[in-house]
């Protein structure tokens, strides 16, 4: 689960923690809009607020001039919050226009986020939405009349699907559709739901059921045994038939691998070849040798990769 942050992410984070002038960490007294998302109990939470330049007659012409945040969370949560504020301040948006800023815009500004951290950018977009809702209430703007679909109460209403992160069915349904989430792990990456106890994954009415009811039941699952051949589709010509492939593997093992093993009193037997998986059995001195695992990976698998197909995997039997 190692991940790499982009330079932009690291830079924004460092600016924030070092209290540089360009950073937006902090609070605005008397903000015009304030919204929160997440909860400290769940590992990250964000309070987002903005101040507008009020238009004397038409609140819809208010312009956001300052944005700040208080965020409890990791590097990418802080950096996402910074990104949100920077985008908003840089664009002189009206609050309604600001709603256009979604998590994708934040990810883009950060020059990418690891998939496990996408939820940080989603949190930013959600907090912004809540803040705009708050602004609308303060300024007497009826968002519904404007056709803006904001869902401030969906988190409080509806059946809880993910108990660990308190996420309700309406919220998850909207997020699954908005962010085009197709698998449980995509849901977890984006909104964290299902990331803790995992019992909601396949429970009746759980995450998989939501996915199925939105996208239809699973299709195309079950292609996991190395489908590299199919993926390669483009170069039909260079492709070996399973028989040719097996023949090539056997020839290579006979000509190079086996003589080397036999020198040390060992031998190798090809048990089966399944697509790009080659099952082998080391015999003689190799059987039970401590170095057998290394031999298999370094010598057998590497020479097959070099000479036959780089996607080959060797499995010891």
């Amino acid at each position: 689960m190692a991940w790499e942050y982009s330079d932009k992410t690291k830079e924004l984070f460092m600016n924030a923690v070092q209290g540089k002038d360009s950073a937006h960490l902090g609070e605005i007294t008397d903000p015009d809009g304030i919204g929160e998302h997440g909860s400290i109990a769940c590992g990250d939470a964000m309070k987002f607020m903005f101040r507008v330049e009020r238009h004397p007659t038409d609140p819809l012409k208010d312009v956001i001039v300052e944005a700040k945040y208080l965020t409890f969370g990791c590097t990418s949560a802080i950096a996402s919050s910074e990104a949100l504020c920077a985008i908003i301040e840089g664009g002189r948006y009206t609050p309604i226009q600001a709603l256009e800023i979604d998590n994708a815009a934040i990810v883009k500004f950060l020059e990418g986020l690891p998939s496990q951290k996408i939820h940080c950018s989603v949190m930013g977009a959600e907090a912004l939405e809540a803040a705009v809702f708050n602004w609308a209430q303060n300024r007497g703007v009826d968002l519904r009349e404007l056709g803006v679909d904001i869902h401030p109460h969906e988190q409080e209403e509806g059946r809880i699907v993910c108990k660990c992160f308190s996420m309700t069915e309406p919220y998850l349904r909207r997020k699954i559709k908005e962010l085009n989430l197709r698998t449980i792990s995509e849901i977890t990456d984006a909104v964290k739901a299902g990331g803790a106890c995992a019992t909601c994954h396949h429970a009746p009415g759980g995450l998989q059921d939501l996915l199925d009811s939105i996208w239809g039941t699973a299709d195309g699952a079950g292609k996991s045994i190395s489908t590299a051949h199919a993926a390669d589709g483009a170069d039909e010509e260079g492709r070996l038939s399973p028989y040719q492939f097996a023949k090539k593997v056997e020839t290579l093992v006979d000509s190079t691998v086996r003589p080397m093993l036999q020198k040390d009193g060992g031998d190798i037997e090809i048990v089966d070849i399944k697509d790009l998986l080659v099952y082998v059995h080391l015999t003689g001195a190799c059987a039970g040798c401590v170095g057998a695992g290394m031999t298999l990976k370094m010598m057998v698998e590497q020479s097959l990769k070099d000479n036959v197909d780089e996607k080959i995997r060797v499995i010891a039997v």
């Binding site: 079950g222 996991s224 045994i225 399944k274």
Partner: peptide, 14 residues
């Protein structure tokens, strides 16, 4: 027989 077992594994094995 382990070999028979390996041969039985398929891409759509559940």
């Amino acid at each position: 027989d382990v070999r028979t077992f390996i041969r039985a594994l398929r891409p759509d094995t559940l």
